[in-house]
Write a protein that binds this DNA or RNA. Structure first.
Lengths: 228, 228
DNA sequence: CCCACACAGATCGTATATCATTTCAGATAT
DNA sequence: ATATCTGAAATGATATACGATCTGTGTGGG
């Protein structure tokens, strides 16, 4: 029959809609309509929402329901900080396992990113950025840390779409830093150094976004959605 | 009525049984009996199990069911490594927020631990150890990282009870290192240094356990439960 | 004019029932 | 004797139904 369970279907649908921004932060996820749309009962939808809750993509209150997680600036900061931590560690742990072919592939992606710089296509740039880093951290031998990296990136997808914009100046720097990281991995630099650089790479993005958003405080509110 | 939902009750019951070792790794969690025992239907139990799955305390296969997660030595290594990472970061981030009173409290706990050394009560020592570190990382301003620390410790509880024993020699070193960490926090040492020391403190425990388990390979198998 | 209470609608929480899948035992054939 | 097939029992997955809880609104009294 169907290769996947209904809970899984529901999860994927809701998830994709959150990722795509169709369900904006604060959107109330009501069981019945979603179940109706997928032509199933509310039970699998419930499970899907609980899963999303565990991943912190939605918040849930008893007898009230679920809504897509609201995103404050501090939330963005915390998520980025966490991602910097786990991705830095994952990249360092993966470094010894990364093959010459993978480095080659990462270089190609980075080259494409460099080309994209002029086109100013933030969406595409972000995709490539994930691809690039994926090549570097997917070899991480610690599945727990790798899982945390994935969760962090997933969370970032939502945050990005919701309110935090792309910082123009940062892209160029980012591409340059990528090359530095690649070089260190090739040179088999000590894990602690790779970790530090990889973490700083992400922290720098965080700082850039915060600085940028400070400058444009008048246009973008601190919270994407009012608290109540 | 009841202050908590049935899913919550089921979650707590199963969780406590896993923590206490009543449900050993590999134990099959069958819905119906658990539901019967708690005098509820299987639906809330399902949700509870899905939650435990998200926390990686149980593994789940479709149409097969759930069982308490099996623990291999590599699993222990990965969990410890992850905990070292996030706890180190949490401790460093929390350090500036830690008050003199909290340091005082931590010192007292550490003193108690020192007393416990002679009594050889691993259970109690582990409890105090968690208490000590809790004081240091609970002030972490980043809730995501703090959450990861909690998850890591919860996971450790299970692993500890299941198959990995206490390493006698390590305890003494551990208390000494605690004092070093306290001193650094008091001195407002740079975050990066505190992070490094806190991480090394946990990594050292990991190494000690691995070395110990290598020595005693003949008595303790690598996997606590056969794969199939 | 404002506040409190009550009622109604919406929504979640759980139980029960039915369907689907897996597993295992026993039988049968090679 | 072993391998394979078959069917029944166990178990999970989902649907439906009902009860519980919350939220908002309107009405009555102060």
């Amino acid at each position: 029959m169907s290769s996947e369970s209904k809970s899984e279907q529901a999860y994927r649908l809701i998830r994709s809609r959150i990722d795509s921004g169709q369900y904006v932060p604060g959107y109330r996820l009501v069981l019945a309509p979603i179940a109706g749309e997928l032509d199933m009962s509310v039970v699998p939808v419930r499970e899907a929402i609980r899963r999303l809750e565990a991943e912190q993509l939605v918040t849930f209150e008893r007898n009230i329901g679920a809504q897509v997680a609201l995103v404050k600036e501090t939330e963005y900061l915390h998520t980025m900080q966490t991602l910097a931590l786990v991705e830095g560690a994952a990249t360092a742990l993966a470094a010894p396992e990364v093959s010459a072919g993978q480095i080659q592939r990462a270089r190609e992606i980075n080259a494409t990113m460099r080309e994209t710089l002029n086109a100013f296509d933030p969406q595409r740039f972000t995709e490539l950025n994930l691809e690039f880093h994926s090549v570097l951290f997917e070899s991480c031998p610690n599945p727990h840390i790798l899982d945390l990296v994935h969760r962090g990136w997933n969370r970032m997808k939502v945050l990005r779409n919701s309110s935090f914009s792309f910082v123009p100046g940062r892209a160029q720097e980012s591409v340059d830093e990528h090359e530095v990281i690649l070089q260190m991995i090739e040179d088999r630099a000590p894990a602690s150094e790779i970790e530090a650089v990889a973490r700083a790479h992400r922290t720098a993005t965080l700082d850039a976004v915060l600085a940028y958003s400070d400058e444009h405080r008048q246009t973008a509110e601190r919270e994407s959605v009012p608290a109540a």
